[in-house]
Simulated assay, not measured.
Amino acid sequence: MSRHSATAIGLIAVLLWALLALFTIGTDPVPPFQLNAMTFTLGGTIGLLWVAATNGWSRLRRVPLRVYLFGTLGLFGYHALYFSALRLAPPAEASLIAYLWPLFIVLFSGLLPGERLGLYHVLGALIAFAGAALLIAPDGNGFTGGVGLILAGLCALTWSSYSVLSRTAGAIPTESVAVFCVLTALLSVPLHLMLEVTQWPQDTTGWGAVLALGIGPVGLAFYVWDIGVKAGDIQLLGVASYAAPLLSTLILVLVGVASTSLTLLTAAALISGGAGLAAYGSALRQRNAPR
Rank of each mutant, 00 (worst) to 15 (best):
L262Q: 10
V239G: 11
L250Y: 11
S188K: 14
T174V: 15
E196D: 13
V177I: 11
A240M: 14
A268L: 08
G228R: 03
L191A: 09
A258I: 01
L186D: 02
Q202S: 09
M194G: 06
V253E: 09
S176R: 02
P201C: 14
A240V: 08
A258W: 02
T266Y: 05
A221N: 13
A269V: 15
G232V: 13
G228I: 13
G208H: 06
A240I: 04
E196Y: 06
L186H: 08
F222R: 05
L211H: 02
T204D: 13
A258M: 11
S261H: 12
A231G: 01
T249E: 12
P245I: 07
L264E: 08
L186T: 09
I234P: 06
D203A: 00
T174M: 03
L265H: 03
L211N: 00
L211S: 05
G214I: 10
A178N: 06
I215Y: 08
L186Y: 03
A240G: 15
I227K: 12
P201M: 08
T263G: 07
W207P: 11
S188V: 14
T184S: 15
T260N: 03
T198D: 00
G256K: 05
A244Q: 12
W225I: 08
T204I: 14
A244G: 01
G216M: 06
L236N: 02
P190G: 08
